[in-house]
Amino acid sequence: MSEPGFSLAIGRTPMAAGLRAAGALPDGTRIDFAAVEPIHRAFAPMARTQRYDMAEMAIVTALQALAYGKPIILLPLTLAARFQHRCIIRLASRPALTPQALRGRRIGVRAYTQTTGMWVRAILAEEAALPAEAVQWVTQEGAHVAEYADPPFVTRVAEGLKLPDLLREGAIDAAILGNDLPGDPDFAPVFPAPEAAARAWFARHGVAPVNHVLVAARPFAEAHPGRVAALLAALRAARPVAQPDLLPSGAEAMAPALTQVLAACHAQGLLPRRLAVEEVFAPARALGLD
Rank of each mutant, 00 (worst) to 15 (best):
P71A: 02
P71C: 05
I72P: 00
P76G: 09
P76Y: 09
P76E: 08
L77D: 01
F83Q: 13
H85V: 06
H85G: 05
R86L: 13
R86F: 00
C87D: 14
I88A: 08
I89R: 04
I89C: 04
L91I: 04
A92R: 13
A92Y: 07
S93I: 08
P95T: 06
P95L: 09
P95G: 07
Q100C: 00
Q100S: 10
A101K: 08
L102S: 01
R103K: 13
G104N: 11
I107P: 02
G108L: 05
R110P: 08
T113Q: 11
T115C: 04
T115N: 05
T116V: 15
T116Q: 08
W119L: 10
A122L: 04
I123C: 00
I123M: 12
L124E: 02
A125C: 05
A125M: 05
E126T: 14
E127K: 15
A128G: 11
A129T: 06
P131Q: 04
A132Q: 08
E133D: 15
Q136C: 10
V138C: 05
T139C: 15
T139P: 01
Q140P: 01
Q140D: 05
E141N: 03
G142I: 06
V145N: 01
V145Y: 01
A146Y: 09
A146F: 12
E147G: 09
E147H: 10
A149M: 11
D150T: 09
D150Q: 11
P151I: 04
P152Q: 13
V154G: 03
T155R: 14
R156E: 11
V157C: 11
A158F: 13
E159W: 12
E159F: 11
L163S: 06
L163T: 03
P164T: 06
P164E: 03
L166H: 08
R168G: 10
G170M: 07
I172E: 00
D173Y: 03
A174G: 12
A175Q: 02
D180F: 07
L181I: 08
L181T: 07
P182V: 06
P182K: 08
G183E: 15
D184Y: 09
D184A: 07
P185T: 10
P185K: 10
D186H: 12
F187P: 02
A188W: 01
P189C: 12
V190T: 07
P192W: 11
A193F: 14
E195I: 09
A196E: 15
A196W: 10
A196T: 14
A197F: 09
R199G: 03
R199K: 15
A200S: 14
W201I: 04
A203Y: 10
A203T: 13
R204C: 08
R204W: 11
G206N: 09
A208S: 12
P209L: 06
V210M: 11
N211Q: 14
N211P: 04
A216G: 06
A217Y: 00
A217L: 04
